[in-house]
Design a protein around this nucleic acid. Structure first.
Lengths: 105, 105
DNA sequence: TGCATAGATCGCAAAAATGCAATATTCAAA
DNA sequence: TTTGAATATTGCATTTTTGCGATCTATGCA
């Protein structure tokens, strides 16, 4: 079957995984869950992938793929600073998910 | 990783599939999507599994499993009448899903 | 009781998701 | 330019999901 909305489908598949939901939840209040960073503001820029990786307790490639799934679903915004990538929530994408859900479900 | 909420996890996995979302959407207004039934009122009792099966275009065992996933997630209510099983939405479960989402996401 | 219908379950194959190690890429600093 | 750190990508194994045919179970009717 063809998904009526490819975006909503990607978003729902993205949040169907507990680790990825955990990341989204942590990033609701980065200061409450992560130590301050030298480069990149926790809130404005997001949290360094390395921090997320160690908190998740998964290998680096696995974490990287989880983050990519969330970015591709429009739920996270990546920001490259120097050799780091910082991730913050994409509130617009999350709002779209909520809207799509209430319409489709 | 352990899912913080096993129920929410089951619900999100359940709606991560387009066919299952389609069923939930059809059942929002059964009269708009299904012909009247002899036994079992479309709205009060739900829609016969056979009708859902033919509308989905999937084999009987496959449809049966999809419906079971939705029932186990508390999103559908099954009702056995004679040799048929009718399915309707579990609005309480769907409300719980919405609540869980807004809390966790 | 015997038979037909609807649905549930079993067993298996194909596809997708998830994990990791190894490797490639990117960027900064020496 | 070489080195090191952080991230991205590749390749592969394991698990989960999804599909089907075959079969079992439950129910109703002759």
């Amino acid at each position: 079957m063809q998904a009526p909305s490819p975006l909503l489908d990607r978003q729902l598949k993205a949040i169907a995984n507990p680790q990825r939901r955990q990341v989204l939840e942590w990033l609701r209040d980065p200061r409450a869950h992560f130590a301050p960073q030298i480069d990149g503001d926790l809130v404005a820029d997001g949290v360094c992938a390395l921090r997320i990786e160690e908190k998740l307790g998964l290998a680096q490639p696995t974490t990287a793929r989880h983050l990519k799934v969330l970015v591709d679903a429009g739920l996270l915004v990546p920001k490259r600073i120097k050799q780091w990538t910082f991730y913050r929530r994409d509130e617009a994408g999350l709002a779209a998910l909520r809207t799509g859900l209430s319409e489709q479900l």
